[in-house]
């Protein structure tokens, strides 16, 4: 029942914060990787080069679905912004259901930019069904499709190292985030600015994806303070022998 209370309280707070009209724009701390991502989006359109968005092999049917959904939200925004580019973005997924949603999300981005006729269904791809198979397929896209930057956002384990190595060999920008600890450590060692932990879920808010994304960040901060207080309170209670 505690879980239900947490979910309901979070839902009410998220709803309220989303509807709350801010008098001034939200003040977000600088995350270098997301600043770089914002700049990369603009540069790829100007240069006429392609962005490759790797969404990883997270299935939507298990707990890894959260990072996949965050990746899709980011893809939706990128698709809208780069849809009119000479070389539109290409997205890859390592899970069939995620692959289907990738195509749907790309199409929604093109619709929002009012250029649906430019949408090519093969720009959203399933490149493999196992993590390493997926990485091998995604490396092929990086090498052969005039890609200037790789945005690796989703569920990645150590196979992220292969994507990072391929990016480095082709002199591409790599922006990476994973919900898996091994993936995060690999990306930390391989990228100039890595996204750690919950920063993966902040990309939408930083790219201006809407009020709900800003509200999500605010809610995460509020929840984090509750967790900190609960941890400190629990430790103090244990110390004085209450629990």
């Amino acid at each position: 029942m505690n879980e239900l209370i947490i979910i309901l309280a979070s839902a009410v707070l998220l709803f309220a914060i989303t509807l709350w009209k801010r008098k001034s724009p939200a003040n977000l701390r600088e995350i270098p990787a997301l600043t770089r991502l914002y700049r990369t989006l603009g540069l790829s359109i100007e240069d006429g080069t392609r962005l490759h968005i790797s969404l990883g092999s997270g299935s939507l049917l298990d707990a890894r679905g959260g990072s996949a959904l965050a990746g899709l939200a980011l893809l939706r925004h990128i698709a809208e912004r780069t849809s009119t580019s000479d070389k539109p973005s290409v997205a890859s997924a390592g899970d069939p259901t995620l692959g289907l949603l990738t195509q749907d999300t790309l199409q929604a981005g093109y619709q929002a930019a009012a250029v649906e006729e430019l949408y090519v269904p093969t720009s959203g791809r399933v490149t493999g069904l196992s993590p390493f198979g997926y990485a091998a397929g995604a490396m092929n896209i990086m090498k052969n499709e005039n890609v200037s930057a790789n945005i690796v956002v989703g569920h990645f384990g150590s196979e992220a190292g292969l994507l990072a190595e391929a990016s480095d060999r082709e002199n591409m920008i790599l922006i990476g985030a994973s919900d898996e600890l091994s993936g995060q450590s690999v990306l930390f060692a391989n990228t100039q600015d890595a996204l750690i932990g919950e920063e993966l879920f902040a990309a939408g808010a930083y790219l201006g994806a809407g009020a709900s994304h800003i509200a999500s960040l605010t809610l995460q901060d509020i929840m984090r303070w509750f967790v900190i207080l609960a941890l400190l309170g629990g430790a103090a209670a244990k110390l004085i022998g209450v629990i």
Binding site: L69, A70, F201, Q220, R224
Partner: peptide, 24 residues
């Protein structure tokens, strides 16, 4: 880090439940 990821997953899931994000 995992607590942070869990909070991010929770808010992302709620956004999809509210229909604010529609990947479908």
């Amino acid at each position: 880090i995992l607590i942070g990821v869990a909070l991010g997953t929770l808010t992302t899931g709620l956004r999809v439940l509210f229909g604010a994000d529609r990947p479908y």
